[in-house]
Design a protein around this nucleic acid. Structure first.
Length: 578
DNA sequence: GCCGTTTTCGGCCCGACTGTTTTCAGTCG
């Protein structure tokens, strides 16, 4: 899918928000920034929406009203936005470049431009070298030093890092801080607690009566490159890996309120606080208050309840309908962590995996699973030495033998015969039906011809879904986070075909795939289509990624029964036999 | 500029930390 128009418009709106902020305009900046966020999060191309439903369609997007819908219309029609051009003249600077400097926001950028005509990072470096900054009003020697330091450590704009690659480090820091004297509890909050697919920083909450001690421990961690701020209850650091980490400490009695506040996300919290205001209350990280009187603070559950809401799980806190559902008691019962019984995508050393079937099976047992499907690539994927019909049959014999061995060892574990069957360019499969019939479960995927037109790609995949033996479509959109855009395809049409043919769509939870992503999971299960959460394991260590898949499925409002590999093996095989 | 089951007008989250300030504005989350 091509959302470049969405990101282009979001970028313009974000720039406008920034400039308006610099011009001291009230409230509009938030309106523009929220609109930008909403457009980015929307799963449909705004140009398509506009073409089929006009301005009315655009106004269905949250935070888009008459004015912004007309702005979008103008950008689609003319490729530019006059109002943006006008604003740009008032602050014609490299917003992205300069924003990468810690502590430099719209107001200061405006001063730097007005007084010194600083437009770029290079201009800024020059001004620093000649000590012009310190002499400016509202700046000083310290500001100059800080900007100089900021120039050295530009905020990494390589983007966000997949959760799976950050989680081990975050947990290590959590462990270390837990050992500080006087600490009652340390918990990772923020986007990690919400299981967001990528992470921009690590947020940690500490419960302690002696917050200064834990702040001291935090800023002394060996993982740290620089200290950005260091106060008695809050500190902020840049880690050596280029990511920021924040620690917030509160007293035990404020635990629930602080956890709610520090988990976010921001939009969710703003909405929750607005609900508090409407009830004549105030919510902050210390509790829920009516004037000076405390209403709730110990647990998140109590705070949500006091606001008339069912408890909202962290994964759902994205301001995308969860608050309304909590008011109406309509929140889903999310799939619990640890409820997967199997993993249906695993590659072995028969193709591009690193280990034997048995080693992977034993690792899966260790991870608490009851079954796995071996899904080596098939023959047309030359680079992975894909298996042909004969080799598949031979692998089947090996799997049979291992299953017998497990029975003899009295191990309750089963290996299923499967494959990651390659979909040809025309939508046919590269393995003959006779060989496919011998497999326990059949999964398909595309690995080539990524650049087909949207129409052709969609038709190709639907043809594979319609094959009478196919059970699962692997990594349906093909995106690789920070590396490859998804293929152009009409996901709605694919979901429809999957529903009609009772085919499941995969949530491949390898950290940089996470495909389907959260919002797509929500779209898919809303249409009654099942998902399979698989690790795509190539190595025994990879089974630890299962928790990431559950996190993303929960973000997509999935219940246990929406996920086929929570089922006992008998139920799964019955389903697979169509 | 958006939004609404207390509002179609009058609201718009809240607080810590920093640096420049003698009481506060900017930035950040």
């Amino acid at each position: 899918m091509n959302y470049s128009i969405n990101s282009e418009i979001a970028k313009i709106f974000n720039h406008m928000a920034f400039i308006l902020e610099g011009l001291n305009v009230l409230f509009k900046p938030r309106a523009y920034a929220q609109a930008a966020e909403a457009i980015l999060a929307w799963n449909k191309d705004v140009e398509e929406i506009y073409k089929s439903e006009g301005l009315t369609g655009l106004k269905q997007i949250p935070s888009i009203g008459q004015n912004l819908a007309e702005h979008i219309e103008e950008i689609i029609k003319t490729g530019r936005l006059k109002e943006y051009e006008k604003l740009k003249k008032k602050l014609p600077v490299d917003i992205e470049g300069l924003s990468a400097i810690e502590g430099l926001g719209p107001k200061k950028m405006k001063i730097l431009y007005d007084k010194l005509k600083i437009k770029t990072v290079a201009d800024l470096a020059k001004a620093i070298a000649t000590h012009k900054i310190a002499k400016l009003e509202h700046f000083g020697a310290q500001s100059e030093t800080n900007i100089q330091r900021g120039l050295k450590f530009l905020k990494t704009n390589t983007g966000r890092i997949p959760l799976g690659y950050i989680l081990p480090l975050a947990r290590e820091i959590e462990q270390k801080l837990s050992k500080t004297p006087g600490v009652k509890k340390v918990i990772i909050a923020g986007s990690i607690r919400r299981w967001q697919e990528t992470i921009g920083d690590i947020d940690i909450l500490a419960i302690s009566d002696q917050p200064k001690k834990i702040m001291e421990a935090f800023v002394s961690l060996p993982e740290i490159q620089t200290i950005l701020s260091h106060g008695p209850t809050r500190s902020s650091v840049r880690l050596k890996i280029g990511l920021d980490a924040d620690l917030r400490a509160v007293a035990p009695k404020s635990f629930g309120a602080a956890l709610q506040y520090f988990t976010g996300d921001k939009n969710h919290n703003v909405k929750i606080r607005e609900i508090a205001i409407k009830k004549g209350l105030k919510l902050n990280e210390y509790g829920l208050w009516r004037k000076e009187k405390n209403i709730a603070c110990q647990t998140e559950e109590k705070i949500y309840a006091a606001l008339g809401l069912d408890y909202i799980e962290p994964e759902l806190r994205t301001d995308s309908g969860e608050i309304f559902a909590a008011q109406k008691h309509q929140l889903p019962r999310l799939i619990p962590h640890g409820s997967l019984k199997g993993d249906l995508q695993i590659q072995t050393n028969w193709t591009d995996g690193e280990c034997t079937i048995e080693a992977l099976a034993r690792a899966a047992m260790e991870a608490g699973l009851e079954y796995i499907a071996i899904t080596d690539h098939t023959k047309t994927l030359g680079i992975a030495h894909g298996l042909d019909e004969k080799q598949l049959a031979k692998q089947g014999q090996k799997i049979d033998a291992l299953n017998v061995k497990f029975i003899k060892e009295k191990i309750n574990f089963k290996i299923l015969k499967s494959a990651e069957i390659n979909i040809n360019k025309d939508g046919s499969l590269d393995i003959a039906d006779a060989a496919l019939k011998k497999l326990d479960i059949m999964s398909v995927a595309i690995h080539s011809a990524f650049r087909l037109s949207k129409n052709e790609q969609t038709k190709r995949i639907i043809r594979a879904i319609e094959h009478s033996l196919v059970n699962i479509l692997f990594h349906p959109t093909g995106r690789l986070i920070n590396r490859r855009e998804p293929y152009e395809l009409d996901l709605e049409a694919i979901i429809k075909a999957a529903a009609a043919n009772r085919v499941a769509l995969e949530l491949d939870c390898f950290p940089d795939r996470m495909d389907l992503k959260d919002t797509y999971v929500r779209q898919v299960i809303a249409r009654g289509v099942k998902i399979a959460i698989d690790t795509d394991a190539h190595h025994p260590e990879h089974f630890k990624f299962l928790e990431l898949g559950i996190g993303t499925a929960r973000r997509g409002w999935a219940a246990k029964n929406d996920v086929i590999n929570t089922w006992p093996i008998k139920k799964l095989l019955k389903w697979a036999r169509k």
